[in-house]
């Protein structure tokens, strides 16, 4: 079971969190024209990366905040966690 540092609550076990997918995906602005391809990329197309990956988790059984977690998908090593409003520096 992973041990995740919630930026608001501290180190907590994985079973307090729920996984939320790729954290680098940006939702297109509302009302803006967008090509089919770009929309598909936003909704469906995800890379299944092996290695370092920024992803979203929600601390559902804790502070209910969505957080950003930098994790290695192969080794499960967690390098960094950020609050929802903190920018990822890639």
């Amino acid at each position: 079971m992973l041990y995740i540092k919630c930026p608001h609550c501290g180190m907590r076990s994985q079973n307090e969190f729920s996984y939320g997918g790729d954290a680098t995906i940006k939702r297109p602005e509302l009302g803006k024209e967008i090509s089919d391809q770009d929309w598909d990329n936003f909704v469906y197309n995800r890379k299944s990366l092996r290695g370092k990956h920024w992803e979203l988790w929600q601390h559902i059984s804790g502070c209910r905040q969505w957080i950003k977690v930098e994790r290695d998908t192969a080794t499960h090593e967690i390098f960094n966690t950020l609050k929802a409003n903190e920018e990822i520096s890639l």
Binding site: R27, L56, I60, R64, Q65, W66, A84, N85
Partner: peptide, 13 residues
């Protein structure tokens, strides 16, 4: 609830 929190915290803060 999670859905609303997602948009409020991440997409439209």
């Amino acid at each position: 609830l999670s859905h609303l929190e997602y948009y409020l915290q991440l997409v439209w803060p």
